[in-house]
C-alpha cells in the first residue's frame, strides 16, 4: 500500500484513494461531430504505457477532490502530483 500525496491533504494511505485512469482526456466539445471511430476512441480507448503515465486520482476518503498525478506504471511509484489545472511539479 503506497503513500499517496494528495495535493490538498498531504500523504495518505492508498486505500483512501479512488483511481480515475488516464488524465487529460476531455469530453469532446461536440460529440455529435465525431464519427464512430473518433467517438469510440473517446469512450473506450486509453493509453496504457509501461512507464510514466499521467493519470487521475480522487481522495475518496478525504477531501474528495480529483487531482492529476504522474506515476511510473513499471514501478508503481508516483513521480508527481498536482491539482487539477495546475502544471505537473516534479
Amino acid at each position: 500500500m503506497q503513500l499517496i500525496a494528495c495535493p490538498w491533504c498531504g500523504e495518505r494511505e492508498e486505500a483512501e484513494f479512488h483511481y480515475g485512469g488516464q488524465a487529460h482526456v476531455p469530453y469532446p466539445a461536440k460529440p455529435a461531430d465525431l464519427d464512430d471511430e473518433q467517438w469510440a476512441q473517446y469512450v473506450f480507448f486509453r493509453d496504457n504505457p509501461k512507464g510514466p503515465f499521467a493519470e487521475r486520482w480522487m481522495h475518496a476518503a478525504g477531501c474528495r477532490r480529483w487531482f492529476d498525478a504522474l506515476r511510473d506504471t513499471a514501478t508503481h511509484q508516483f513521480l508527481s502530483v498536482h491539482r487539477m489545472g495546475e502544471e505537473p511539479r516534479a
Partner: peptide
C-alpha cells in the same frame, strides 16, 4: 488492483 501497473505486485490491503 485498481490502478494501471506493470510491476507484478499489488497492494497488501
Amino acid at each position: 488492483d485498481s490502478y494501471n501497473g506493470y510491476g507484478q505486485r499489488g497492494a497488501f490491503h
